[in-house]
Write a protein that binds this DNA or RNA. Sequence first.
DNA 1: AACCAAACGTTCAACTTCGAACACAGGGAG
DNA 2: CTCCCTGTGTTCGAAGTTGAACGTTTGGTT
Lengths: 383, 383
Amino acid sequence: MGDDRLFALQRRERVMDELRRHGAVRVRDLARILEVSELTVRRDIAALAARGLLTRVHGGATLPTELDPATPAVPSRRPRTAATAFTIGMVVPSLDFYWPPIVSGARASAAALGVHIQLRGSSYDQAEDRRQISRLIAAQQVQGLLLAPNLEGEGADELIDWIGNLPVPTILVERQTPDWTPTPRQLEWVRSDHALGLETAVRHLHEHGHRRMGLVLSKGSPTSAHLSVGWQRACADLGLPAEFVVRESVALDVPGHREIISRILERCRHHRTTALIVHSDPDAISIAQYLAEQGLSIPGDIAMVSYDDEVAQLAEPAMTAVRPSKSRVGRVAVEMMVARLVEGKRRPPQRVLILPELVIRNSSVNSTGQLWSAATGDAAPYT
Amino acid sequence: MGDDRLFALQRRERVMDELRRHGAVRVRDLARILEVSELTVRRDIAALAARGLLTRVHGGATLPTELDPATPAVPSRRPRTAATAFTIGMVVPSLDFYWPPIVSGARASAAALGVHIQLRGSSYDQAEDRRQISRLIAAQQVQGLLLAPNLEGEGADELIDWIGNLPVPTILVERQTPDWTPTPRQLEWVRSDHALGLETAVRHLHEHGHRRMGLVLSKGSPTSAHLSVGWQRACADLGLPAEFVVRESVALDVPGHREIISRILERCRHHRTTALIVHSDPDAISIAQYLAEQGLSIPGDIAMVSYDDEVAQLAEPAMTAVRPSKSRVGRVAVEMMVARLVEGKRRPPQRVLILPELVIRNSSVNSTGQLWSAATGDAAPYT
DNA sequence: AACCAAACGTTCAACTTCGAACACAGGGAG
DNA sequence: CTCCCTGTGTTCGAAGTTGAACGTTTGGTT
């Protein structure tokens, strides 16, 4: 095709381009610029308007607007279900550990917004992640994907690239990409700010006089990396030694957990450590139980803060814990996806951090302090 | 006849905008501002009133009210979630530079959600920030605050602490605190990811073969710090020299801008620089103009990318630009605040990054590339 | 209560834009 | 090669938009 005329589709793309640049376009101007008749331009505009990409006005078109007289004045009752009832695919690495609150938050939000969720469990394995995602795509049933693939190890970059080129929009959940991704659009994500959560714990203990702390991390959890970052940052800021880190699971069901805990306490004595931050409630409870057996008091001899707050309140004494709001992560993920599906490419990519809360109970400050803290808790700035 | 008159729909948007800004409008004033007859304004107002977007009154119109005699007593009106009609205070450092799109995004979102916005202009000065914020608090009229204080220089930490202890919830807009803040709750914020935006520009130029680039930053803009971060990061990742950075404003209204530009081009020649990224469209346009005068072609001799995309499309050639969606920042800020006000303390703090888009025009790749880009644009993952 | 100026609505006219009908060109399938 | 479909252009009556003129209503003032 030797002539420089554009294909219809290209021309419409240019119309949208002009529109985005100027906010409004005039049929007459477009006809001149594109070197086609005004009627053709009108037909283009009509086609684009039919897809809701712009709003027709007498003489041209503007960016889509609520004032569009073509859309019914009062959508009145249900702006919800009318929205073509989206189905969102969700692939999480585990269905019985860490993820249930996230999934349930997502489900609740989906129900409220009138969309469906197709859930797939994967393992913490990239090949399995891909298989599950491919199946969802192949079924042609989902308009968007919430993913939590394994991004550690070798194939991470390639996997990110693959995800970014899937034919439906994707949002990563509890995962973070490098800032810049080589994908057509920058990937979106929503995750808990675990680093900040851990920092909050360290500073809480620091405020109550502790100067030597230890950190016990669950082995093999993707959360550990973030916790480690927060630990380093907090210790650096506060001028604390950051070397006391143990990477061992010590929950009651781990064989040999008593020996590991015993070694940890050995280190505590040696370093004069007065506080421990423990990832995962079961591990914290296990340590608390061992301490009790040894006749050591919490928080008198050792203060403890647990990270996760699933069952921390069941410990004896009730355990101060950092609580990342997992259900909120699921909820925000669904809300973001619905917004993306409704608004399409007009919506710029977003990335959201959900900040964990510190729930102060009795394992970190003695109960008089607890009372005080509860009192001021109620007097917090707003309700 | 370059008809610069607005379309009817745009005019009506302006009417709604004025209305949101002032709470009420007069037919006479609108006719003068919009440069149409009063009759036309009346017709617009009548049309908007018919959709329930405003209430007609003798002489003009006001925001919709239940007292509107035109509306029947049937409560089948819009989704007036405003059972409690929140008022949100907003303090921005400037009312005529950078901030108007953010404010207007916030206003539109507020109107959609049925809340009011009280706007205060400050300067880029902490004392003035405090005064404006204090006034809003003292008036007892606002239930929440969107703030963009100056957090550079001495008193930043103290100011953050002060803000965190205000008696109403606050959200920072286009500002970021240190990760951890010593406030009762961690501060929330929403901001453009300018660093990522700049990184996108660098990588775009890198993809098209440029290996030596320069960065021109507006002097004294709070955005510059972020841009500098993105520049360092991108150059480090790509293995490019990162030393060519100029911190001078070179817009046409800066005295001596020609000398500065001339020195910049001198450096370009010396370093064999083939691409420039320029913060702020006016500065980029100014440089483009100078290049044209010198007989240098864009992008042939020097490729250019502008940062901000306010007027980049008006340059000759139309300028490739990074566009941070400012209106979206305002919109998300209001949505976050309303969510916070509705949900109270149950809602964990959130922090949101809005990612800028790269708008590829003709100053960075030659126009054959444009055709290609338009064609593949249609094949984008989703619509 | 009477009055007046401003605001409003109706009607008509000038002008612009829209779209239906028909004609024509070009590429792909049979 | 022909047929057919899609996309495009021209013409012309229909429909939409705006503003001037003028009579009517409204809100406030004397």
